[in-house]
Write a protein that binds this DNA or RNA. Structure first.
Length: 114
DNA sequence: CTTATGACTTTCA
DNA sequence: CTGAAAGCCATAA
């Protein structure tokens, strides 16, 4: 598991920073974040970074605004459940719909475009 | 240097 | 259309 305790500007830090830039009421995809970091194929890294998101950042970083390419909340993390993420999004005015037990967001409408 | 892992993505049967 | 498999990238051991 990654734990970049050093002050080096790791991918994690960059991911956190980009997430913080996502405006309220908008969402971004893992691939999008990865592309902004300069590595369009490192989407899984983004997911990983958010998975390891430390508690102190959890309250400051809008991690819920980052979803997969289909606009689906595909978190498997037990601590941060999809339902919780969906609630956070709804609280921001983002419409979250449930299909077959999965939460979906309308990317056409809410995708963040920098 | 080699392996393993992960809240992803794309391709193929 | 659906599900499985391989591909990709950064970090840890």
């Amino acid at each position: 598991m990654p734990s970049p305790k050093n002050n080096s500007l790791s991918v994690f830090e960059q991911v956190y920073r980009l997430c913080a830039q996502v405006p309220r009421g908008k969402v971004a995809t893992y691939g999008q974040i990865a592309a902004l970091l300069g590595s369009p194929r490192a989407a899984q890294m983004v997911g990983w970074a958010l998975h390891e998101l430390p508690p102190d950042k959890l309250s400051k970083i809008p991690w819920q605004r980052v979803i997969n390419r289909e606009g689906r909340i595909s978190t498997t993390c037990q601590e941060h459940t999809a339902s919780l993420q969906a609630q956070l999004l709804k609280k921001e005015g983002v419409t979250v719909t449930m299909r077959q037990g999965n939460y979906f967001v309308d990317l056409k409408k809410y995708l963040w475009q920098p």
